[in-house]
């Protein structure tokens, strides 16, 4: 689940939800016109880049949705913007038209080659880094599943290209109160809710982050299973 767009004047926030657990299934069970109690935010800090460079946003899964408003903002700040999004096959790519509108160059990647580049987003990223000097990014922003963000970090690690990953560990309150979302960045413990979500991808301890994200896998499955049996009332 991620915020994909907003309109301050109309008081609108658009979120994209992939139904994977209890909460996202609750949301998925809602009909048009239904209400949820509250939405709290925005929390955390915006990513910091010096404007005027070439930014490549790399997204996988719901991460593509998160890139939409972030990359539009970069473009408005005067950056040259490229978005690389990937999925297993063409029909699993989301928001393609919307993404195309907010950047200078949209790169699609599919595992089966059903559209765009055949291969992983990181392979396409590598090509852009290795290719023509004019294609080379000044900044890379990775949003998506942990293995993808780690692969992006590994791709840019030796190139000196500043890379940020958007971490979404388990958290309770989002205000720094529980410490459940702690991540290790360059040997230092940070709270993703207040210090993040964007961190220097080359400094992130991905082993630990992946391990912590699995803390409640069994319970998540149990809760989701219970809800689907009992309905979403």
């Amino acid at each position: 689940m991620t915020i994909t767009d907003y309109d301050r004047d109309r008081g609108l926030v658009t979120i994209v939800v992939q139904e994977v657990g209890v909460t996202t299934r609750y949301l998925g069970a809602l009909d048009e016109g239904d209400e949820i109690l509250d939405i709290v935010g925005p929390l955390g800090e915006a990513p910091q880049f010096e404007p005027g460079g070439h930014v490549i946003g790399v997204g996988g899964g719901y991460g593509a949705a998160a890139l939409l408003c972030l990359m539009r903002e970069r473009k408005q700040q005067g950056d040259r913007t490229t978005i690389i999004v990937g999925a297993r096959q063409k029909d699993l790519l989301i928001l393609v038209d919307e993404l195309r509108e907010v950047c200078d160059n949209l790169e699609l990647c599919t595992d089966d080659g059903s559209t765009g580049f055949k291969g992983l987003v990181t392979e396409r990223l590598q090509q852009l880094i290795d290719g023509d000097q004019s294609e080379r990014p000044d900044y890379v922003l990775a949003i998506g599943p942990m293995p993808m963000m780690r692969a992006v970090a590994d791709t840019t690690r030796t190139t000196g290209i500043a890379t940020q990953a958007s971490l979404d560990p388990l958290m309770i309150d989002g205000t720094g109160m529980c410490g459940g979302c702690r991540v290790t960045i360059g040997g230092e413990v940070k709270f993703a809710c207040v210090d993040g979500p964007f961190f220097d991808a080359h400094q992130v301890d991905f082993d630990e982050a992946v391990q912590r994200s699995k803390m409640y896998v069994k319970e998540e499955a149990l809760a989701a299973c219970r809800r689907s049996e009992g309905g979403m009332s």
Binding site: I172, M177, C178, G179, G180, E208, Q211, R212, M215
Partner: peptide
């Protein structure tokens, strides 16, 4: 804001701040 000790292994699964545990 919970304090942590800063000892090795503090981010292992199963380690909680009292705030998280009680909340």
């Amino acid at each position: 804001l919970p304090k942590f000790l800063g000892i090795p292994g503090e981010n292992l699964n199963g380690v909680y701040s009292a705030n998280e545990f009680l909340t």
